[in-house]
Structures are given as structure tokens and as C-alpha cells.
């Protein structure tokens, strides 16, 4: 554990809780992509199955349980409790275009051919692109609520901070996992456009709207 990873994890946690609280408080999930949330639920489920097979630390296990519960809680709010507020007309990204290639890639480029390892790899590849339906939705509606922008910023920062963590771990522990590093870089690049808009608009008190 180092400061970059801790900040990354906290940023990730903040993003997930921010979304959950926003939906709960406003009694609405308008502007949130249900498809991205489904993808994140698949990501957490396939990655954290190792809760049953390997133990790293209390910290890791607790975080995994929180991420899983919050993710399924978000799905429950979006597709059940506040379903009438879900803006499915604008959530039109085809997620099979992400689910299938990520699955194929996880069979092609993987550290070891075991069920748990292929599922872990799949979760890494799918996570890298899971935000695309949400970013597509923002581009279709041309705007995002400020709290949604904060959510996206925290979620994007998490992997960017993990990149710093991997650089640090490379020099201090000789840690080098190219699958997660390259996927993490791709994931962060997808947010760059959004980061630019966030810094130039939202941080100056303006609403995020596209030209």
C-alpha cells in the first residue's frame, strides 16, 4: 500500500458513494447511464469472486464488499425503485460491443488459463471501457449535472492515481503487471476529454455543457 493507491481507492469509493447518495437524495437517476452501471456490476462481480478463494487484507476484503454492495444497490435504485426517472432513450450505447470484445481479449491475453484468472482479466478489460455508455450519454444530452460531473471526475481520477501507484511499485517492488497497467492507461485516456471540460467549466462554477 502506498499513498497513490490509497488516494485512488478513496477516490473510487467516493465516486461510488456519491452516485448512490445523489440518486437516493434526488429520488432520480436522470442523466446516469444504467448500461455503465450494469457493466460496473459485472466488473466487480467477476473480479471480486476471489473474496472466496484468496485473502489479502481486511482492508481489501471490506472494500470489495462495499464496492459490490454499492454497485448492486445502484442497480436496484435505477432499475427498480426509481425506474420511472431512468432516461433510457439517451442511454443507447450497445454494450455487447464492449462485453464481447473484452471477453475475447481476456482469452487471448491473460496471465494464466484458469477460470479465476480469465474472469479477473475480463474484469480489467471491461472496466477500462465500462464508462463509455455514460460518456456517450453525456455527449448525446450535451450536458451533465454538476454532481454527475463530480462522480465522473472521482471515478476517472481513481485509475489515474493507480497509474502513479504502478510507477511507484515498479521502482520500489519490481511490480509489473502489463495487463492491468495498459488497461488502466486506456481507461484513463477515455476520461481525458471529460477531465478537460471538468477543469475548464465545472471547477469554475459552470454547468458541464457541450458546445
Amino acid at each position: 500500500m502506498n499513498i497513490f493507491r490509497l488516494c485512488g481507492d478513496l477516490s473510487h469509493l467516493l465516486a461510488i458513494l456519491l452516485l448512490l447518495v445523489k440518486i437516493w437524495k434526488t429520488r432520480s437517476c436522470a442523466g446516469i447511464s444504467g448500461k455503465s452501471q450494469i457493466l460496473f456490476a459485472i466488473v466487480y462481480t467477476t473480479r471480486y469472486l476471489d473474496l472466496f478463494t484468496s485473502f489479502v487484507s481486511i482492508y481489501n476484503s471490506v472494500m470489495k464488499i462495499v464496492f459490490l454492495s454499492a454497485s448492486y444497490g445502484t442497480l436496484y435504485l435505477m432499475f427498480y425503485k426509481f425506474k420511472p426517472t431512468y432516461d433510457h432513450n439517451h442511454d443507447s450505447f450497445r454494450i455487447l460491443y464492449l462485453i464481447v470484445p473484452a471477453l475475447v481479449l481476456s482469452f487471448v491475453i491473460v496471465h494464466a488459463y484458469t477460470l479465476m484468472e480469465v474472469l479477473w482479466t475480463y474484469s480489467i478489460y471491461l472496466e477500462a471501457v465500462a464508462i463509455m455508455p455514460q460518456l456517450f450519454m453525456v455527449s448525446r444530452t450535451g450536458e451533465a449535472e454538476t454532481i454527475t460531473s463530480h462522480y465522473l471526475f472521482a471515478l476517472g481520477s481513481y485509475r489515474a492515481l493507480y497509474i502513479l501507484n504502478w510507477i511507484y511499485r515498479y521502482y520500489t517492488e519490481d511490480f509489473l503487471d502489463l495487463i492491468v497497467i495498459i488497461a488502466g492507461i486506456v481507461q484513463t485516456i477515455l476520461y481525458c476529454d471529460f477531465f478537460y471540460l471538468y477543469i475548464t467549466k465545472v471547477l469554475k462554477g459552470k454547468r458541464l455543457s457541450l458546445p
Binding site: R5, D9, H12, D50, S54, V56, S57, N60, M63, K64, F67, H111, A112, Y113, T114, M116, E117, W120, Y162, N165, D177, V180
Partner: peptide
């Protein structure tokens, strides 16, 4: 046997 890497991150 196949050796799996240990994943210690989230």
C-alpha cells in the same frame, strides 16, 4: 500446475 499471479489490488 498452472500458477496464478496474486492480485493484491482492488
Amino acid at each position: 500446475p498452472v500458477t496464478e499471479p496474486e492480485h493484491d489490488e482492488l
